[in-house]
Structure formats: structure tokens, C-alpha cells
Design a binder for these strands. Structure first.
Length: 457
RNA sequence: GUGGCAGUAGCUCAGUAGGUAAGAGCGUCUGGUUGUGACCCAGAAGGUCGGGGGUUCAAUUCCCCUCUGUCACCCCA
């Protein structure tokens, strides 16, 4: 007995209809990226381990898929390290390559490596799968796609403004009716740490307050306490949890709060510029909000931070992004600031499914099916089939003279729009019978009129 | 990586206090004769009850391990 086939943990197969829907999302994103001047690049699915290891923190290293050395290289295994129970070192001796964990670090490597071939500011987009040895959960996989756009080599805030327009355009194009772009600035968070006398605890503070909408005010306060933040600092931070007013009003309040912090005030000014331009330009469907508790886990962000959430749908953020001053420094290229965003295609897919926003058209992968009545009819159909295809109408002929019931059921399963029936009488009259599957209506159409008849429906 | 819950036909699930209890709906296939799908009727196929080990005269049902999924944490898309 054959064993039941399965795919590895955290991976997925995609049916034709699912691929069509995913491509609809990817194509929308790509088209918009290109409209905004981003060019596509690709990088290998695996990199040297040394390129990736240590770039995502200790937790990240654990989640990187390592590729086992093969052939003679297995002899490099460091058995001594194994004896000494030095597992990381042992693992390194077994593996020199690893699967891409995200698109940003490979991009940094790419920029450094090709710096002489690129002109800056360099704008690229990249839509490729990445792999993480994470424990799968609903909506979290070991293999998934990232859709990133980044620009490196400029500190200009015009790019922040651009990215907000881009978020708005892509998601509006996908017909998402109501979503909010949240924006904050790491300099404001640094300012908060500074004026509360907790500079050294910037990371724990940002990680904690980022969880506000998930664990609530008390939860955040508890976490801050656990992380050893002083009581007086926590008291100062607390009012930030319920700032009210519109974005500009909140920024003014923050300006008071941060009046002692130079870096904090700089963050305020940057945000005012970005928000001001955005309001002047206007947005289609997006709301734009300043959220001082928005932090994002990634600690390479140094300036603006973005996150996008769909309103009225119970789901985490569908897009994110931010500015980083020094991503390429790790690979030896200094003074190369960047800013980038990422679309969460899988979550967007779920949102469009939940809200029933996928175009119905995506389900029709076949426009015309010729019914097959036998050899003579078949050869009569073939030239017609070719003509339809030349007119860009996706068509096929049933491969054998099976029962009509079976052929129609096949047409139905394929969601073919039309079935063309050609038997003895049709051949004799030089007319074909066209059945519109949706309505069941049948029409006798002259062969010369066939293409225009199909095209008009 | 830590902890909780789950795993029975292609899908969604019922069931057995351990012993003729392996079932339903949907789906699939065939038929309801001549060139017609979605509705209706009839029939059929399809499961070592996730995998391995243990306890027992006997395990889908109890215990252990493992795999997969799911939830929370960690982290994150």
C-alpha cells in the first residue's frame, strides 16, 4: 500500500484558484511598486550562513534553516565541539549555507556587493519566498512570501511620504474599503527613554509598549516592571497610553513631553513634515494616524515606523516598514541610510477572503470548451479552436467523445463560460451552437460571427 | 523553544465506559438509453480510526513516544 503523501510542516500547496488570487495580489503590488519607480531584483534562496547568522538576534539565529553540508564536506564536522557540548559551533561545522530568512539582510548584502553598479538613491522591490524554522500557527508558515520595497542612499523624508501614498494606492486598488496607516518614529521612542532616564532600556521599553493593544495598559506596566524599569519612569510613560486628539494635536502634546530631548524633538519634526505632506496630498481610502505606542520588534529601525491595519477585521497588521540608518554597516558600507516597507501577502489574502473582495473573474480560467462528438467533428473544431486562441480567447476541446453529461460536468467544474456544440447538423449548416453556461441559454451562431459573439459576452 | 487542546473516508464531523460500532452529510464514480452541467432519484467505490511502542485474552477506544494541526507564550509576516 502506498504511503499517504504529505508536505513538510509549515508549507502549503496552492490550487489553481489560489494561485490566481495570490497573483492578483502580487500583480497589484508589483504594478504599483513599478509606478513609484522601484525596480525588481532577485537574490538566491540561500545565502552563506555567515551572511545571515547574527543579524536577527539570538532568537532569529535559532529560526534560520541551515543547509547541511554534502559530499566530502561532511568531513568538516567538528566532533570535538560536539563532545564539548558546544552545539552552535558543531552546527556551524556541519553547515555553510542557510535559507533566506527575510529579504532585507540579503538586500543589504546585495547593495554592498554591487555598490559600484548601482546609482543612489537605489530603489528596489523584491517578491520572493523566505523560510523560518518557526513553530507554525494559523497564518504563520515556515515558507512564505515577502513583498518588500526599499530605497537606500537617501535620508529624504519624501520617501516616507511616498510609501504612505503607496500603501494607500495598493490597498485601495485591492478594494479594501477601510484601513489605517499607523506611523511613529523611533526617535520619539528614544526621546521617551531619554526623558524618563531609561536610555539603556530603550529596547525593552519599545517591546513592551508595542504590546499595548494586545495586553492592555496593565499588561504593559507589568512587563515594564518585570524588565526593571523604574517606577518613576513608568509613571511618566503612563499618560502616553491614552493620548487623545488628531495626529497633529497628539504631536503637540508629545512635543511638550519631549521638550528636554533633542532626539525626541527631531522625531516630532520629522513626523510633522511627513504627516503634513500626506494630508496635503490626500489619501484614497487610508486613514493616517500617529500612534506613539507603535514600536515594531525590529531593532534596526531608527526613524519612521509604519504599520497598516484593516479596520473591522480581526487581524494583525497587513503591512509594515520603517527607516534604518545603517543596515549595510554590518557588511562594511557606512553612511547608507534606507527606508522600506513590506506587504504581508498571506494576511492580505485572508482579508480579501473574509471581506469577499476577490474579483469573481479570477475563477474563470477557461472561456470556451468545445464539446467532442467524434473524429469528424473533432477535426472540424480544431481550426475554430485555433482561431479563438488567436483572438486571445482561452479555449480547449474535450479530449475524447465522452458522454455529453460528462463533458458538460467538466465544463462546469472548469467554470467555462461557454460550451460550443458542433455535431452533424452544425457542420452541415456552417453554424455552431453556443451554450452560455451561467444562464443555460443556447444560441445558433454563424462561424464567421463566433469570435465577436464570444467577445461581446 | 515552552505549555494546553486536537488527529476517525477526499472534506466537515458523529461513535465506542476496551470485545460483530467503523457511520452520516457533502464530494467522487456509475446509472436514470437517443447531443447538454448546476436540481432530483438509485447504486457503488473509498478508512491498517495520524505513525510507532506498551498494558491486555482483546486496543480506534487506556499509557508512553513521535509526527501534523491548532491555541497561548516567545518571536514575528
Amino acid at each position: 500500500m502506498a504511503q499517504k503523501p504529505t508536505i513538510p510542516k509549515g508549507t502549503r500547496d496552492f490550487l489553481p484558484i489560489e494561485v490566481a488570487k495570490r497573483n492578483y495580489i502580487f500583480d497589484t503590488i508589483k504594478t504599483t511598486f513599478q509606478k513609484y519607480g522601484f525596480a525588481p531584483i532577485e537574490t538566491p534562496s540561500f545565502e552563506l550562513s555567515s551572511t545571515l547568522m547574527g543579524k536577527y538576534g539570538e532568537e532569529g539565529d535559532r529560526l534560520i534553516f541551515r543547509i547541511l553540508n554534502s559530499g566530502e564536506k561532511v568531513k568538516k564536522a567538528d566532533l570535538k565541539a560536539l563532545e564539548e557540548n558546544n552545539l552552535p559551533r558543531f552546527a556551524n561545522s556541519l553547515s555553510e549555507k542557510a535559507l533566506r530568512y527575510d529579504l532585507t539582510v540579503p538586500f543589504a548584502r546585495f547593495v554592498v556587493q554591487h555598490q559600484n553598479d548601482l546609482s543612489f538613491p537605489f530603489k528596489r522591490y523584491q517578491i520572493q519566498p523566505v523560510w523560518r524554522a518557526d513553530r507554525p500557527q494559523h497564518g504563520r508558515y515556515q515558507e512564505f512570501y515577502q513583498c518588500d520595497a526599499d530605497v537606500v542612499g537617501s535620508e529624504s523624508l519624501l520617501y516616507e511620504v511616498d510609501f504612505i501614498q503607496l500603501f494607500d494606492e495598493v490597498l485601495s486598488e485591492l478594494k479594501i474599503p477601510d484601513f489605517t496607516i499607523y506611523i511613529n518614529n523611533r526617535k520619539i521612542l528614544s526621546g521617551i527613554a531619554e526623558v524618563t532616564g531609561e536610555q539603556s532600556n530603550l529596547i525593552p521599553i519599545t517591546v513592551a509598549i508595542d504590546k499595548l493593544d494586545k495586553i492592555g495598559k496593565d499588561g504593559v506596566i507589568n512587563e515594564l516592571k518585570e524588565k526593571g524599569i523604574s517606577v518613576s519612569a513608568i509613571e511618566r510613560i503612563q499618560p502616553l497610553f491614552d493620548l487623545s486628539g488628531d495626529a497633529m494635536e497628539k504631536l503637540e502634546k508629545m512635543r511638550d513631553f519631549l521638550s528636554e530631548s533633542e532626539i525626541g524633538l527631531q522625531g516630532i519634526s520629522e513626523l510633522q513634515k511627513v504627516l503634513g505632506d500626506s494630508h496635503r496630498l490626500g489619501l484614497k481610502n487610508a486613514k493616517l494616524e500617529f500612534d506613539v505606542t507603535l514600536a515594531r520588534g525590529l531593532n534596526y529601525y531608527t526613524g519612521a515606523i509604519f504599520e497598516v491595519k484593516v479596520n473591522g477585521v480581526k487581524m494583525g497588521s497587513i503591512c509594515g516598514g520603517g527607516r534604518y540608518d545603517d543596515l549595510t554597516g554590518l557588511f562594511g558600507l557606512k553612511d547608507m541610510p534606507g527606508v522600506g516597507i513590506s506587504f504581508g501577502a498571506d494576511r492580505i489574502y485572508d482579508v480579501l477572503t473574509t471581506l469577499d473582495l476577490f474579483p469573481k473573474q479570477l475563477e474563470n480560467d477557461l472561456t470556451v470548451l468545445f464539446a467532442n462528438f467524434g473524429e469528424e467533428e473533432e477535426s472540424f473544431c480544431l481550426p475554430l479552436l485555433k482561431k479563438l486562441r488567436e483572438a486571445n480567447i482561452s479555449s480547449e476541446i474535450y479530449p475524447s467523445a465522452a458522454k455529453m453529461k460528462k463533458q458538460f460536468k467538466y465544463a462546469d467544474d472548469r467554470r467555462a463560460a461557454f460550451v460550443i456544440i458542433i455535431g452533424a447538423s452544425e457542420m452541415e449548416n456552417q453554424k455552431v451552437t453556443v451554450k452560455e453556461m451561467k444562464t443555460g441559454e443556447q444560441t445558433s451562431v454563424a462561424i464567421s460571427e463566433l469570435i465577436s459573439f464570444i467577445s461581446l459576452h
